[in-house]
């Protein structure tokens, strides 16, 4: 009899669990909605959005190429170059970080790998535009600062992905080299690296796609690429210029995603 009662109360606790979660969610949302100060929407909002849309449909075609080196095509290529070079440097720098952070065996805590993972998290969280601003202090405004920002920031994600693929690696080839008398360097060169290389390349390509997006906005803080003229065009309300730059970015990103996606499918 008593057993039935306890099971009954157990049931009802389970049945009302959703109520508990609902109350928590409602409290969080009340906090969220009352927290954001509704600063109002400018009266000109409708007008401005209309101008932006008409700007996108009537882009400033003259800006596409004018031979000055400051036109859309040159700056898009500069943006792509920033992303490419940054990702390349980052991929090289990430390899030692990945070996640092990779867990070997089943142990959850290990001084070496845990500290490595922590460092990678720190790098990942450090805002990329702050990095860009710091590098602008060192090398002056321009796309080189952007390259450096991309190459340091990307270590956070690439290092993490690389270390995970090292952790999940097939150990067969390494064991084969070791059992036939190879030393550690030979194991690394002939077994470990060839095993993980396709995955490394695939992750690097994936990161390159992300880098193209972030390189296109780094210019907003002065680190080169298409972001600088875009921010300038928005601030001076030259919507036809904004339209053509947006079109340029959309086409570039779509193209890069498609090419990189195709290459990645062939790799893994």
């Amino acid at each position: 009899m008593s057993g039935q009662i306890t099971s009954h109360t157990g049931m009802s606790v389970k049945r009302y669990k959703w109520l508990f979660w609902l109350v928590i969610v409602v409290i969080i949302y009340i906090w969220g909605i009352t927290g954001v100060h509704f600063t109002g929407i400018k009266d000109s909002a409708g007008e401005v959005s209309q101008s932006i849309i008409s700007g996108i449909f009537h882009p400033d075609w003259a800006y596409v190429y004018d031979g000055s080196g400051e036109d859309l095509i040159s700056l898009i290529f500069q943006t792509l170059a920033m992303a490419f070079l940054g990702t390349f440097i980052s991929a090289i720098l990430s390899v030692p970080f990945a070996f640092w952070a990779a867990r070997n065996g089943k142990k959850r805590w290990h001084v070496r790998s845990t500290s490595g993972k922590l460092v990678l998290t720190l790098i990942r969280t450090f805002p990329e535009i702050v990095l860009a601003i710091m590098f602008i202090k060192a090398v002056g405004p321009g796309s080189f600062a952007g390259v450096l920002a991309v190459s340091i920031h990307s270590i956070g994600m690439l290092g993490k992905l690389f270390s995970e693929s090292i952790e999940n690696m097939d150990l067969g080839p390494s064991e084969a080299i070791m059992s036939s008398g190879g030393n550690r360097a030979q194991t690394l060169v002939f077994a470990t690296l060839p095993t993980v290389l396709p995955e490394f390349l695939s992750y690097t390509l994936y990161r390159f796609e992300i880098a193209v997006r972030s390189a296109s906005i780094l210019g907003m803080v002065g680190a080169g690429g298409i972001g600088t003229p875009l921010l300038f065009a928005i601030q001076t309300r030259t919507w036809s210029r904004v339209g053509i730059i947006l079109l340029g970015i959309i086409i570039t990103v779509t193209l890069i995603d498609y090419v990189s996606g195709t290459l990645r499918k062939r790799l893994v």
């Binding site: 954001v36 100060h37 509704f38 600063t39 109002g40 929407i41 400018k42 909002a45 401005v48 959005s49 932006i52 535009i129 997006r213 972030s214 296109s216 906005i217 907003m220 972001g227 875009l230 921010l231 928005i234 601030q235 309300r237 904004v242 947006l246 970015i249 959309i250 990103v253 779509t254 995603d257």
Partner: peptide, 23 residues
């Protein structure tokens, strides 16, 4: 198309549309 737009770029556009602030 929506996914190609980077976050800061959207922010710059919306600041121009609705004005400076959390909205």
């Amino acid at each position: 198309l929506v996914r190609t737009l980077p976050d800061l770029m959207l922010a710059a556009l919306f600041v121009a549309i609705v004005g400076i602030g959390p909205v």
